[in-house]
Amino acid sequence: MATVELTFSALPAHVRTARLVATAIARRTGVEESLLDEVRLAVGEACSRAVEAHRVHCPGEPIRIELRDDSGRFQVTVSDLAPSEEIKQEQPLDLGMLSDSFMSSFGIAVIEGLADDVEVFPSPKGTNIRMSWPAAVSV
């Protein structure tokens, strides 16, 4: 099982780097080209969410990404250390309620719409978002 781990400080500028690394590893792991855009966006959303949460709660702590080839699936786990409540479920769309804070929950909705398989584990010690896509070959 090949694993790549990346940690970065909670700065928006690093999210692009994380996206690029995830996309490169996904390609190398054998994820279909047609799915790479989804990997790039979903990982970017998870990292953006983590950066925003760290900037509020723990700006000095790093965010961790683990990318692995797991039995024919490319699996990405984005872990933050910011305390989190349960993720709010989808609500009916109303422009009046689309504040910037409400929009932040769109990140999870986007991830769920993109990744083949998503699990979100919020806790008082941080949130882990694990997502995976089918992969053809091992690294």
Partner: peptide
């Protein structure tokens, strides 16, 4: 080339302002 939910939030914010 790339748009995420942060960008969506900016567009929604702009829409609210013009409306």
């Amino acid at each position: 080339d790339f748009l995420d939910s942060t960008g969506l939030g900016v567009l929604v914010g702009g829409l609210k302002r013009v409306r």
